[in-house]
Design a binder for these strands. Sequence first.
DNA 1: TCATATTGACATTATGCATGTCATTTTGAC
DNA 2: GTCAAAATGACATGCATAATGTCAATATGA
Lengths: 153, 153
Amino acid sequence: MHNVNMKAEQLHQLIWMSRPLMQAAESCVEDGLAGTNLTVRMRAVLEILHKYGEQTVPELAARLEIQRQYVQIMCNETLASGFIEQRANPRHKRSPILALTNQGSTLIEDILSNEMQIMQEMSEGLSTEDIATALKVVLFVVDGLKKRAGERK
Amino acid sequence: MHNVNMKAEQLHQLIWMSRPLMQAAESCVEDGLAGTNLTVRMRAVLEILHKYGEQTVPELAARLEIQRQYVQIMCNETLASGFIEQRANPRHKRSPILALTNQGSTLIEDILSNEMQIMQEMSEGLSTEDIATALKVVLFVVDGLKKRAGERK
DNA sequence: TCATATTGACATTATGCATGTCATTTTGAC
DNA sequence: GTCAAAATGACATGCATAATGTCAATATGA
């Protein structure tokens, strides 16, 4: 009985740490971008292209799960920066494929490796099992919350 | 060696689940507000007043860690709704104390209890230890990220 | 008393999206 | 090959959630 409330209480706390967690993570990423001429959203474009390879704006939008109109803007900015470039798309002549330039490729690899370095340093204070457990719990909770939101619709 | 990368990788995943987690949680809260004439930010005002008792706008702002000018707007809206009211502040005549009305008090208790119900249902799929571990890990990570951001400044 | 701080009110700006519309391709079914 | 439907880029608008700046009134405290 009391245990049930305890669990719910802790779960509640966990869920609402998501905001500070996100803010802290984002401002950390932002710090890592200092001196690169990149914005956070340009970094996001580079990251996806690095992770999943060259692709079009609509593909990127699907991957990022945000509207293509906004992704278009992000990509145009990134294009202007010279870290990505357009290549002819054999599958769709109006929608060029976006690809990292050498410069962009080097840059995003550098950034990601610095970020991973931070992850490694931080993970030293935690056990492998605890991290795995935390990830499992969070995935479970996100899933549960999404289902619940889905029901209502 | 490989284990180190594994940990970093999982930690990375965990951290970046914070955004979907937050979004899912917020849209769940929003669902719970349907039919109440409350907005999410009005709910936030009621929640703080319920949790920490009656207080002034600047106090609320400190608690929410957002600028008092914005909190002022939230509070004015909430005042207009009739769920909170102003009371004379003996400590500062220009800054009335905001307190829940009976209506507001009933409403926020109702909302919070529904939300806790959801927490309980969801926590059934998880063990007490796993939830505690997840919370511990997340707190540790937030702390670590904040320190890191703090250093740079 | 009087300099300083606090507060509410108001204005402006920024960020991160969602949504709508349009003209121009492009695609796919026939 | 034709043609309706879909995809795409470009542009406009709107909205929530703030941050920031300013001002006048008032309150505080030395």
